[in-house]
């Protein structure tokens, strides 16, 4: 028996609904239809009255979640695509993210963002929003790369007293499989060593972890040992694990599927340079998508985002420097 990344997300939600009567799911087409990606399939039948279709009103969906969280409930909001969360942006960053600081009343909401590029999805169904939300104080931003993390981080997110931006990668939904759901997990906020090595550290998260692992495998045949750090959570960012890895390897390549300006890769490099400059044997490098909207056509899309090929090229250059 195996379980996909998407099934893990559905299973985590089913478990959260079963174990905590305060949990409910609100989003477009999440009810009888089971969600655009089927992440809530059959949940309405198992939990009647607690899985609700929302009008196409991202702003009001988030506002309702804040009101319900104030009342002690634990809403899970499904944004149909991460890209559409910008239509609810105000309520996320100004209402949910400021509530605790302003009033000391916690705001436990999980906002599920199916994001990331897939071939043919184009500019408005492919975006990665983690950097934008991580910029705002008051939000926790999670980026699971594995089936196990999709499950355990989602459960941890529901249990948290703070608003969580849960970045799911659509490319992993159907293809990424695990043998079974995990029984235990790394704590939230800790990065994971996805592969150990001594020559170069690749720090990345979400779908890019798998590209980085493929690169590590490829470069292994050339005699290089690449360490891969999967951040799991971009906010908080586990600087300690990153720094410990860079201390071992002396070389850092940071990879993100998001756009280059600012963002997670810039943050990681800024921290390593300012707090661990003397650990570096070469200037740290970063690889991101191109600074354009995400293209529709597969030829363009494949060249827009980092891939194993472009990551390997960047890694080889860095290893030789």
């Amino acid at each position: 028996m195996s379980v996909t990344y998407l099934e893990a997300i559905r299973a985590a939600q089913a478990r959260a609904l079963a174990e905590d009567p305060r949990v409910f799911i609100y989003g477009q087409d999440v009810g009888a239809f089971g969600g655009a990606f089927k992440a809530t399939k059959n949940l309405i039948a198992e939990f009647p009255g607690r899985v609700l279709d929302a009008p196409i009103s991202e702003d009001a969906m988030m506002g309702l979640a804040v009101g319900a969280a104030i009342e002690g409930l634990r809403p899970i909001i499904e944004m149909q695509f991460a890209d559409f969360s910008t239509a609810g942006f105000n309520q996320i960053v100004n209402q949910a993210a400021t509530l605790f600081w302003r009033t000391q009343v916690p705001c436990p909401i999980v906002i599920r963002l199916p994001g990331g590029g897939t071939s043919g999805s184009g500019p408005f169904h492919s975006q990665n929003m983690e950097a934008v939300y991580a910029h705002y104080p008051g939000l926790v931003v999670l980026t699971p790369a594995t089936v196990e993390d999709a499950y355990s981080l989602l459960l941890a997110a529901v249990a948290l007293e703070d608003p969580v931006i849960f970045c799911e990668h659509k490319l992993l939904y159907y293809h990424l499989k695990a043998e079974a759901l995990p029984n235990e997990a790394l704590p939230l906020g800790k990065a994971r060593l996805a592969r150990e090595g001594r020559d170069l550290t690749i720090v990345t998260y979400s779908a890019m972890v798998h590209e980085a692992l493929a690169v590590a495998q490829e470069l292994c045949l050339e005699g290089w040992e690449i360490e891969v750090v999967d951040l799991r959570s971009v906010k908080p960012l586990d600087t300690d694990t990153v720094m410990a890895s860079v201390a071992r390897t002396g070389r850092l390549l940071c990879v993100g599927e998001s756009w280059p300006w600012g963002g997670v890769t810039a943050e990681v490099i800024a921290r390593v340079v300012s707090e661990g400059f003397d650990l570096l044997d070469a200037p740290p490098q970063r690889l991101n998508a191109k600074d354009t909207p995400v293209p529709f056509h597969p030829n363009l899309w494949a060249a827009h985002r980092p891939t194993a090929r472009s990551i390997a090229a960047a890694a080889r250059t860095l290893l030789r420097s």
Binding site: D59, G63, L64, A65, V66, G67, A68, I70, Q91
Partner: peptide, 13 residues
């Protein structure tokens, strides 16, 4: 922006 927050409180109650 407060309208839907009121909705959320009413919904929860």
């Amino acid at each position: 922006a407060m309208i839907s927050v009121v909705n959320g409180v009413l919904f929860a109650r």
